[in-house]
């Protein structure tokens, strides 16, 4: 039995060794806000925070999460970034968006004063095939407005 701390709550799960955090979140816990688009660490759609640090849940073995607090998009639903994304039209199909927002939330927490250069460096791990990038950049730079 594993105890996971997720979005301020505690969950008990009993996954086989080798199962990933993404599989646990989506499959066992129904937290389907976290998306999986590649399943092998190449796209960023599955980004969650572990103790505030962005991590790829699709290649994180759930047994290695330990004491760390998991924050998913479900825990960030009222973050001002969500509104900033909608305001700036920073999403099209929206499939990459939860991952973008989870990454961005960690970024604005760590660096409240951001430049476009920093955003482009720190968000390069979240692919968006629709190409919402210019608006994503705008949303992150204006998240407090």
């Amino acid at each position: 039995m594993l105890e996971l701390k997720i979005n301020g709550g505690t969950y008990e799960v009993d996954p086989p060794v080798g199962q990933t955090l993404a599989e646990t979140l989506r499959g066992d816990l129904g937290l389907t806000g976290t998306k999986v688009a590649c399943g092998e660490g190449h796209c960023g759609a599955c980004t969650v925070q572990l103790d505030g640090v962005p991590a790829l849940s699709c290649i994180t073995l759930v047994h290695t999460v330990g004491e760390r607090e998991v924050t998913t998009i479900e825990g960030l639903r009222d973050h001002p970034l969500v509104d900033a994304f909608v305001r700036a039209d920073a999403l099209q199909c929206g499939f990459c968006t939860p991952g973008q927002i989870v990454s961005a939330a960690a970024l604005v927490e760590a660096e409240p004063e951001l430049t476009a250069e920093r955003v482009r460096h720190a968000m390069a791990g979240n692919l968006c095939r629709c190409g919402a990038y210019p608006r994503i950049e705008e949303a992150i730079l204006s998240w407090r407005d």
């Binding site: 129904g30 389907t32 976290t34 909608v86 305001r87 929206g94």
Partner: peptide, 21 residues
């Protein structure tokens, strides 16, 4: 105009085919 379904998508509430259970 803002996207009508923008919030659902951004908050991870929108149910895609991938999310159906």
């Amino acid at each position: 105009a803002r996207r009508q379904d923008g919030l659902q998508r951004a908050r991870g509430e929108a149910e895609y085919t991938a999310d159906l259970q």
